[in-house]
Design a protein around this nucleic acid. Structure first.
Length: 880
RNA sequence: GGGGAUGUAGCCCAGUUGGUUAGAGCGCUUCGUUCACAUCGAAGAGGCCACAGGUUCGAGUCCUGUUAUCCCCACCA
């Protein structure tokens, strides 16, 4: 049967099989467990496009690597995903879909609209979940159990009420960002600024009696209709005489004052600014300082309202054109200059946002931010990599109040009720029947910003406000894994809410990763069409390959470029693993147990076992430091460059021609090392490691719950490993020599090795011969060898090739092939190299500063190095 | 304007608290298939570590400046 295994690994044969097996056996299940420590990862709400993208794949891969690692290390692991509720994206999608059918949301009403939204969310939210399993994601149990819609309404209502009662949530008139197309308020974070070519118009405002005038500069002439003042800098000599006087706003009959405010910059434009408190955040502040009223001139859909006089009903863009042309006609337009400036746009629909005064709900952030800042400053919460803490500080320290109301339907509706009779406002967790005055109540139409409910994630998904066992066991959670683009939106708010509501940090570590970019370093986007579909990569190379390529090849926190080349390299690695396992399996006997007998271990056995232990230590360390890249790299190198390239090669004679005991010993070592290596690799490549682990004898039900490898001190042999490394280096040098001299592969050579470790190498002659293409290999201690080489091979020593490595050297009688000139050139090159090295070491050691100030260990190493080099040089000289 | 990065081989990236001859992978050159793997093996070429100063016995690594590229925040009417 084993002989029939195909030569190449096919991921499709195992991925579904193992995923289903794990699922059936309940290995994704997590619950409070007295025997184990909890480990809990918080993951972001997937967006509801229904399509897995590389960002999801990266996020989920990192999370799953950590979860699997912790699980094998004896933790009860949980991750808490879910699908969020409020979302402009979802609302816009549904409105678009309805528009195609000639409907608006008002046509069908709130209730029917929400029904459609739920259907949409269920369809696309679960589509993502289904697709994640192809990646090997192990989070299904939690996903089914904790979703935002199920339990979290209660949490949202309770938190809202609590903050309101403490005065931390308030309703007020503020300048907010308004998207006239989505017809909703946006938080500051949701506005994107894009540079746009426009004009700077200079407009003259005349005195009522035309005795004086002042010229202002503006980029938005349509807001002239809402001007309630003109401001100049208090120190501006040009305008001193005008401060306190009034002017008439053009195109209106309004008389407004000229005020002094330091906000004005004397050297920009004309130094005078028109003040429109209702439509500009800075003007709003000027208005507050100078007592200017706010006059709103646009409707929610961006048209001029009743305050616009003859412009009423015009769209904002048409209004601009009309006003400019009228100003020109009336001679008020003094100048028009080209001007590029940044225009705020809606992050969702990309239309220009208006800043307007509006009645909205706000969270007062300053008092909430303080403890959240402290938690990070004092180290209770740690960012990995650390530099992202600065981003967090930067934002939190300059935080402004957070506008949380959205004029959407799809979301958590604000639990506030108004009484039309007495004008009272009630904020309650459960809907009140009537106003205390007896009047009828109507609920606030707005819903909450999506990040308000998402910010409650770490505890609301665990069942809060119920005191569930999960909440007690898993909160505070352990780690948050997310991209840096979401630090402001999400991370900061979870910390704020965790501290405010639970009185405890929500997690102790924030592991921040970069974004996935395309092979050219561009952000993957629909408009560029450069997005790579993770499912296509899985189809072509397998899920393990995709996962591996996502965690290797870049430092944590840095953006990563994804290319199919990386997936291909990972796929080749899978094939390498598969074939190594296949090779072992060809020799394994069914049902036989293979135990390592320490008495029979060969030098290469001791070497690979030692290297295994070192690799275990390193990989574990790196994973604990969240350094997935290097953890993966270490295990990759160990398996490919050491286990496959050397151990398997060296075991072949024993497996193919050795006696039974030899064969058994060789297999015992290989099987042990391979099985341990599979465990180390399992978090990164769950499917193939499970499959191949099952090929080994004596494995359990699943590698998922196998114990994470530990260093076995009885199987560490430092001195033997070092001797082996020296021999390996000699073998490389010898191969190099053959290649340089173009010795045909068929041409066997003789090799005479000299080393103080000769005894340790005894018995390896056959191996060495195979690896370097030698028909004769002799190993000896220092003194006898030279004579032996001479005696046995008659040729002169100067015709022999002399190979020198640290702690080991060799003679190759190649007289018949040897070109004395070439050989001399080779040796001279080597001598030059050694002399250079020696000179460098000598000058270092001659430097008194070095001797005095460098650590003793470094000096000692330098001395050792010099003596080794010196020895090598001495030997090589004897030959010339 | 404020903040955060990045610049190392043709390409994409590693390089721990300063300490051997700066490393992988892809690509390139040469050689190699009787049995784990050509999705492979062996060997090789290829680097003024952006530039200029400084600190140090010693700098790819630390400091200052210059330059190039990128991201985030704020935003000038």
């Amino acid at each position: 049967m084993s002989n029939e295994m195909p030569k190449q690994y096919d991921p499709k044969l195992v991925e579904t099989k193992w995923y289903e097996a794990w699922e059936r056996a309940g290995y994704f299940h997590a619950e409070p467990n007295a025997e184990k420590a909890p480990y809990c990862i918080v993951i972001p709400p997937p967006n509801i496009t229904g399509k897995l993208h590389m960002g999801h794949a990266l996020d989920n891969t990192i999370q799953d690597v950590l979860i699997r690692f912790k699980r094998m290390s004896g933790f009860e692991t949980l991750w808490m995903p879910g699908t969020d509720h409020a979302s402009i994206a979802t609302e816009v999608k549904i409105i678009e879909e309805m528009a195609r059918q000639g409907q608006t949301k008002q046509d069908i009403g709130r209730e029917a609209f929400l029904e459609r939204a739920w259907a949409w969310r269920n369809e696309y939210g679960t589509a993502i979940v289904r697709q994640l399993r192809f990646l090997g994601s192990s989070c299904d149990w939690a996903r089914e159990r904790f979703t935002m819609d199920a339990g979290c309404n209660a949490a949202v209502l309770k938190v809202f009420k609590q903050l309101y009662d403490k005065g931390l949530i308030y309703r007020g008139e503020r300048i907010i960002n308004w998207c006239p197309d989505c017809e909703t308020a946006l938080s500051d974070a949701e506005v994107e600024f894009v540079p746009q070519a426009s004009h700077l118009w200079q407009v003259r405002y005349d005195a009522p009696d035309k005795s004086y005038s002042i010229t202002v500069a503006t980029t938005r002439p349509e807001t002239i209709l809402g001007d309630t003042g003109v401001a100049v800098h208090p120190d501006d000599p040009r305008y001193q005489h005008l401060i306190g006087k009034t002017v008439i706003v053009p195109e209106t009959d309004r008389e407004v004052p000229i005020v002094a405010d330091t906000y004005c910059e004397m050297d920009f434009g004309t130094g005078a600014v028109k003040v429109t408190p209702a439509h500009d955040p800075n003007d709003f502040l000027i208005g507050e300082r100078c007592g200017l009223p706010a006059l709103r001139v646009f409707t929610d859909s961006g048209k001029v309202n009743e305050h616009g006089g003859k412009y009423e009903g015009l769209d904002r863009y048409d209004c601009r054109a009309a006003i400019v042309s009228n100003l020109k006609a009336s001679g008020h337009l003094v100048a028009t200059k080209d001007h590029e400036h940044n225009v705020g746009t809606c992050y969702r629909c990309h239309n220009t946002i208006e800043t307007m005064i509006s009645k909205q709900w706000f969270v007062s952030m300053k008092p909430l931010a303080e403890p959240a800042l402290q938690a990070v400053r004092e180290g209770a919460i740690r960012f990995v990599p650390e530099r992202f803490a600065k981003t967090y500080y930067n934002w939190m320290e300059s935080i402004r109040d957070w506008c949380i109301s959205r004029q959407l339907w799809w979301g958590h509706r604000i639990p506030a009720w108004y009484c039309d009779d007495c004008g009272a406002m009630l904020v309650e967790e459960t809907a009140p029947d009537r106003c205390p005055c007896g009047g009828a109540l109507r609920q606030d139409e707005d819903v909450l910003d999506t990040w308000f409910s998402s910010g409650l994630w770490p505890f609301s998904t665990l069942g809060w406000p119920e005191a569930t066992p999960e909440l007690q066991y898993f909160y505070p959670t352990s780690t948050l894994v997310t991209g840096y683009d979401i630090i402001f939106f999400w991370v900061a708010r979870m910390i704020v809410f965790g501290l405010e509501v639970m009185g405890q940090i929500p997690f102790d570590t924030v592991y921040v990763h970069g974004l996935v970019r395309d092979a050219l370093g561009r952000k993957m986007s629909k408009s560029l069409g450069n997005g790579i579909d993770p499912l296509e990569i899985i189809e072509a190379y397998g899920a393990d390959s995709l996962r591996f390529s996502l965690v290797t090849g870049n430092a944590s926190g840095a953006d990563m470029r994804f290319s199919t080349g990386k997936a291909e390299a990972a796929r080749n690695f899978c094939n390498k693993l598969y074939n190594a396992a296949r090779f072992l399996r060809l020799s394994l006997e069914e049902g036989k147990a293979y135990a390592i007998d320490k008495a029979r271990l060969t030098l290469p056995d001791k070497w690979i076992l030692t290297r295994l232990s070192q690799t275990v230590t390193e990989v574990t360390e790196k994973l604990n430091e969240f350094d997935l890249n290097h953890a993966a790299q270490k295990i990759y190198d160990f398996i490919w460059s050491e286990f496959c390239d050397w151990s398997i090669e060296l075991a072949k004679p024993a497996l193919h021609g050795g006696d039974a005991a030899e064969k058994e010993n060789a297999l015992a070592v290989l099987v042990h090392v391979f099985a341990q290596a599979m465990k180390l690799l399992h978090p990164f490549m769950p499917f193939i490691t499970e499959e191949l682990y099952q090929f080994m004898p004596d494995t359990g039900q699943t590698i998922m719950t196998a114990a994470w490898p530990a260093v076995e001190s009885g199987l560490v042999f430092a001195a033997d490993a070092a001797a082996m490394e020296q021999l390996m280096e000699l073998i490389r040098t010898c191969r190099n020599m053959r290649a340089e001299r173009q010795v045909p592969p068929a041409q066997k050579i003789a090799l005479f090795i000299v080393s103080p470790n000769a005894a340790a190498y005894d018995g390896l002659q056959g191996h060495i011969g195979r690896l370097v293409g030698a028909s004769e290999v002799k190993i000896s201690c220092q003194n006898e060898i030279a004579g032996q080489a001479r005696n046995d091979e008659k040729g002169t020593l100067s015709g022999d090739v002399h190979l020198i490595c640290e702690g080991i050297e060799a003679f190759v009688p190649l007289a018949s092939l040897s070109d004395p000139a070439k050989e001399r050139a080779r040796v001279e090159k080597e001598i030059t190299r050694l002399q250079g090295e020696i000179a460098r070491a000598q000058s270092k050691l001659a430097n008194e500063g070095f001797l005095a100030k460098a650590p003793e260990k470094v000096v000692e190493e330098e001395r050792m190095k010099l003596s080794v080099l010196q020895e090598m040089l001495d030997k090589i000289r004897v030959e010339c």
